Amino acid sequence: MEQVIPGSDVAMSGRQEMFSLEAWQQAGKWFSYEGHAMFSRMGGQGVPLVLLHGFPTASWDWSRLWPMLEREHHLLTLDMLGFGFSDKPLHYPYSIEDQADLIQGWIEGLGLKQVHLLGHDYGTTVVQELLAREQEGSLSFGIDSVCLLNGGLFPEVHHPLFIQKVLRSPFGGLIGRGLSRPVFERNFRRLFGPRNPPGRQEMEDFWHLLNYNNGRGVLHRLIQFMEERRCHRNRWVGALQNASQPMRLISGSADPVSGVAMARRYRELIPDPDVVCLRNVGHYPHFEQPWDVFSAYRAFRKARNC
């Protein structure tokens, strides 16, 4: 099943409702993971929906979608270790498996028995690891449904930007620490589609989150997840292929990193694929066109009765 949505200007209403970065932080809650302070957000009521953000941003990515989802769901999100307002230890062995340990422990610590998962970019890979664990019987909670936004689900069709490639190189530490705001903005803007690119204040907020707690100093360590995707490709792709719960991919087609080719590969490899393509939308569909993402997600949950 595939749907193509051209995009609508209703997304602007989500922009008006979005939380400022300061308000987002002030409404957060904190907990400890391996001795590190972790930032989280919760809201709404109903069946739990866990939102997992991408690289190199943070949970604030969901701020435009949050007011729409909050009316019908018990929302939970957090800044993963090394991201956003959470701690960013310099010499930590960052990995997708460790982030999955973090998410699993957090959900189990909250006593949740069933959750829905919505992941973007880096967060989609964490979702894949959690799915693999569920299939192996190592989770104490069930996953009722999975929705994925643009991410490197299949490393063979992932096309990283040049700046991402050099961050993975032996000089990545120097590149990350020396990353200037103009270079960051120029590369970051390339990820967005033409309809709703981030404005000046939003770019200021993304830059602030990146720099918080010396974030540029760990970029070269975090980005090694791209190599993890290659090494664990069979496990993580297999988790999608063997999933028993309803799944949908919502894909921004203007994404130069994981857009059209990723959606095409999803249709090739996933049984009975459910794909919604958003035209003229880039790598951050939930930030660019939140109303379209919300509509596609709501329709998915209703159609699958989950």
Rank of each mutant, 00 (worst) to 15 (best):
W60M: 02
F19V: 05
S59C: 07
D61R: 08
I5H: 10
A23G: 06
L21G: 07
H36V: 00
V4L: 10
Y33V: 06
F55D: 02
P48L: 03
K29T: 11
L52A: 07
F31S: 00
F39T: 02
P56W: 07
P6G: 02
E22T: 12
Q3I: 04
Q16R: 15
A23W: 01
K29H: 08
G7K: 13
G46D: 06
A37V: 07
S63D: 14
F19R: 14
S13T: 03
V50P: 01
S13W: 08
E2H: 02
H53L: 06
R41K: 13
S8P: 03
E2V: 07
W30P: 01
M12I: 12
S63M: 10
Q45H: 07
E17R: 06
F31P: 09
L52E: 12
S20W: 02
H36C: 11
E34R: 13
P48T: 09
G46Q: 13
A37N: 15
S8C: 01
G14P: 11
V10H: 12
G44C: 05
P48V: 09
M18C: 01
G46Y: 05
Q16S: 03
M42C: 14
S40D: 13
P6T: 02
E17P: 00
G7H: 13
H36S: 13
V50S: 09
S20G: 01
E2N: 08
E34Y: 06
F39N: 05
E22R: 02
T57N: 05
V50Q: 05
R15I: 12
W62T: 01
M18I: 01
G43E: 10
H36G: 00
G44E: 04
S63E: 15
V47P: 10
G7T: 03
Q26H: 09
F39P: 00
M38H: 08
S40V: 15
H36I: 05
G54T: 07
Q26M: 03
H53R: 03
Q45D: 00
S20A: 03
L52D: 05
W30D: 05
P48G: 03
Q45G: 02
E34N: 13
E2I: 15
Q3C: 00
G7P: 00
M18G: 04
D9I: 15
S32R: 13
S8T: 06
Y33Q: 10
M38C: 11
W24A: 11
Q3T: 03
R64T: 01
G44V: 00
L21P: 09
V10M: 08
G14T: 01
L49A: 03
L21S: 00
D9T: 14
G7W: 14
F55N: 07
A11N: 11
T57E: 04
P48M: 00
S13Y: 15
Q3R: 15
S8Q: 04
V47D: 05
G43S: 10
W30Q: 05
Y33I: 04
R15M: 10
G28D: 06
Y33S: 03
